[in-house]
C-alpha cells in the first residue's frame, strides 16, 4: 500500500474511534490521540521528513490555531484535513497543551555561515520579524517558533504565504510579499540553524 493511503486509512480509523468514543478527550486519551500525530510528526518529536514540521515544543496558541484553521479550511493540507475533521474545539486545546510541553528536538541542522547570517539579519530587521517572533525566534502564544525548524519547511511556508497558497494569515502574506525573493533561502537557513534551548523558559 502506498504511504498516503496508509495515513488515510489510519485517519479514517482514528475518526471512527472519535465518533464512537464521544467528544472531549479525557486525560488518558490524549496520549492515545497523540499517537496518530506521531506517525508523521515523530514518536520522539523528529518528523518523518523535512516537509513535515516539528510540533514538539511549538507555541500553544499557534498549534491550536493551525488545527482550527485546517478544520475550517482556511489552511489547506490534504494530509491534515482528515486528521482534524472530527476534532472538537476542546480536543484542539488539549492537543496544543500536550505538544507545547514537549521538548523541541535538535534536528542537527548546521548553523548558517556568516554571509548567510548577514543576509538573513538584514531581511529580518527590515520587515521586523522579531517584533512578533521575539528575539530568539521562539515565538509566543499564537506566533510560531521558527528557530530550529526544518529549513525546507520554513522555506516552503514563507513562499506559500507569499503566493497565497497558504491563506491563513494575510498579515504574514503581506510581509512575505514585501520581502525580496532572494532573502528567503538565507532566512530559512539562518532560522533552521538556530539553537535556542538556553534562552527558553525565562518567565513564560
Amino acid at each position: 500500500m502506498s504511504r498516503t493511503s496508509d495515513w488515510a486509512l489510519t485517519a479514517v480509523l482514528f475518526a471512527s474511534a472519535l465518533i464512537m468514543g464521544g467528544s472531549a478527550i479525557a486525560a488518558e486519551d490524549i496520549e492515545q490521540k497523540a499517537q496518530l500525530c506521531a506517525t508523521c510528526h515523530g514518536a520522539d518529536g523528529v518528523p518523518i521528513n523535512k516537509t513535515t514540521p516539528v510540533i514538539w515544543g511549538q507555541d500553544e496558541g499557534y498549534i491550536y490555531l493551525q488545527l482550527r484553521d485546517f478544520q475550517k479550511g482556511t489552511r489547506k493540507n490534504a494530509l491534515m484535513q482528515p486528521i482534524v475533521a472530527q476534532l472538537e474545539r476542546q480536543d484542539m486545546y488539549d492537543l496544543a497543551a500536550y505538544f507545547t510541553k514537549k521538548k523541541w528536538p535538535n534536528l542537527g541542522q548546521p548553523s548558517a555561515p556568516s554571509d548567510v547570517v548577514a543576509k538573513a539579519e538584514s531581511a529580518a530587521k527590515s520587515i521586523g520579524c522579531r517584533g512578533c517572533h521575539l528575539d530568539h525566534f521562539q515565538g509566543d502564544g499564537t506566533t510560531a517558533r521558527l528557530a530550529g525548524q526544518w529549513q525546507e519547511y520554513l522555506l516552503s511556508q514563507m513562499l506559500a504565504f507569499r503566493d497565497g497558497s497558504r491563506g491563513n494569515n494575510p498579515g504574514m502574506s503581506d510581509l512575505m510579499k514585501a520581502t525580496p525573493e532572494d532573502d528567503f533561502e538565507p532566512l530559512s537557513k539562518y532560522l533552521a540553524g538556530l539553537q535556542i534551548d538556553q534562552y527558553l523558559g525565562h518567565g513564560r
Binding site: 482556511t74 538584514s122 530587521k125 527590515s126 520587515i127 521586523g128 512578533c132 491563513n168 494569515n169 494575510p170 498579515g171 504574514m172 502574506s173 503581506d174 510581509l175 510579499k177 514585501a178
Partner: peptide, 23 residues
C-alpha cells in the same frame, strides 16, 4: 510603506501591507 489588499481574516494579523526599514 507597502500596501496589499486582503479581506478581514478573523483575528489574524491584518496590516494591509508592510512597513519596511530601509536597509
Amino acid at each position: 510603506y507597502h500596501v496589499e489588499n486582503s479581506p478581514y481574516p478573523g483575528g489574524k494579523l491584518w496590516l494591509g501591507g508592510a512597513f519596511k526599514v530601509i536597509p
